[in-house]
Amino acid sequence: MEQFRNIGVIGRMNSVKVVETLRHLRTYLVNENYQVILESETATMLPGHGLQVASKKLLGEICDLVIVVGGDGSLLGAARELAKSKIPLLGVNRGRLGFLTDISPDDLEERVGRVLQGEYIEEHRFLLDAHVTRNENPVSFGTALNDVVLHPGKSTRMIGFDLYIDGHFVYSQRSDGLIVSTPTGSTAYSLSAGGPIMHPKLDAVVLVPMFPHTLSSRPIVVDGKSEIKLVIGEDNETYPQVSCDGQMDIACAPGDVIRITKKPFKIRLIHPTDHNFYATCREKLGWASNIAAS
């Protein structure tokens, strides 16, 4: 197992509970003689910390592991920033669901300690890149670990768009938009819109229509290496948006083209050895326990 000595720490801003956990984590890591580097914004929450400070980008260059304290959204943001550096990420949950941040603050020392001693499992998750062009000229670009979503923004009007997969025309649709989700995002926004739950090991992408203006429109699961192209109809009266993980918005216009492809590198997620995807689903989604055992 990989040895971790230089530990980067990122925390969600504006949370008293996150600050409490950051203090606890800092004390533990320093007492165990690890080299701790705080992300620059996170450092502002711990005045007098006495630690090295670095940007997210630099963390990816100098650390062996980055620990993210917050919710899944915090880890999503860190993943997009650090994916290229291929540095492993470990999540401490101070959010709500915690599909990605699976260490509880209540047993932080024990669980983090075991990981740092080499008792962990690692999985690789792929991300999506979204390129928006207008008249064949680049407009903007975004990256998502969970999903890329075409939506009407503040407007209540439907969006008309054409869908192509690997250059093949699939359909024209009028709806509130389309969710293009990775397996990681299949338990997030995609799930609330009626999409399937996909195991994280799958190399697949699901396309989930949002309130389509037809009863026959259903989610489609395609190969993860597919190129997905959305062409916004010229006759749209609204200017829709493309969101990446719900954290970055790209303003679009009628006639714009959105191309969505798999990013060429993956993120590395670290979990305690008892991590189990189905157990996480049972806990977070309220699935029934074993009836035979009750």
Rank of each mutant, 00 (worst) to 15 (best):
G50C: 08
D72V: 03
V242K: 07
G70F: 01
H49Y: 05
E32K: 15
D102H: 05
P254D: 02
P105V: 03
E41G: 02
I121E: 08
P47L: 12
L202T: 08
P152N: 12
L59R: 10
R5I: 06
A193G: 00
V208T: 09
H131Y: 13
G160V: 04
I228H: 07
S74F: 01
N146A: 06
Q241I: 09
P183T: 07
D274C: 01
G118S: 08
Q35M: 06
P240V: 00
P47A: 11
I87A: 10
M198R: 00
G224V: 11
V208W: 01
A144Y: 03
L230G: 01
V231F: 01
P183V: 08
V36G: 08
C252V: 03
I10C: 08
H124E: 15
H168D: 15
L191C: 00
P200F: 04
E227N: 13
S104W: 02
A204T: 05
T184R: 02
D102Q: 13
S175M: 04
V231A: 03
P138Q: 04
E109S: 13
T273N: 04
H199P: 04
R94A: 01
D162F: 04
L128V: 10
N137Q: 15
V30D: 01
M45H: 11
T214V: 05
Q173Y: 14
V68S: 05
L207S: 00
M158P: 00
I103N: 09
Q241R: 12
G98K: 03
P212F: 12
N146F: 01
F161T: 01
E41Y: 05
D274K: 02
T156K: 12
M198L: 15
V66P: 08
R111M: 14
L46V: 01
E109M: 13
A279D: 13
I228R: 07
D176R: 08
T133V: 14
T187A: 00
L269I: 06
G194D: 04
D223C: 10
Y28G: 07
L25K: 13
L163V: 14
I220D: 02
L90W: 10
A83P: 03
I67H: 12
V170E: 10
G71M: 01
V36S: 08
I197W: 01
H49K: 09
R5M: 09
T133I: 10
R174D: 05
D203G: 11
D72W: 00
A292E: 14
V205L: 14
V257K: 14
S55D: 13
V221Y: 11
S15H: 10
V9E: 02
C244D: 00
T156C: 03
L285M: 11
I260D: 04
I121H: 03
S289I: 04
F265Q: 12
L108Q: 11
I7K: 08
H151K: 06
D245H: 00
N6M: 07
V132I: 15
V149L: 10
R268K: 14
N33F: 07
P47M: 10
R26E: 12
K17S: 11
I10E: 07
M45W: 07
Y189F: 13
E122Y: 00
P183Q: 09
L191V: 00
G160R: 15
W287S: 02
L230Y: 05
G91H: 06
K154H: 11
I250R: 07
R282N: 03
L51F: 06
K56I: 05
N146H: 04
N93F: 07
E283Y: 11
V19F: 02
A279Q: 14
Q35L: 06
F265K: 13
Q173N: 14
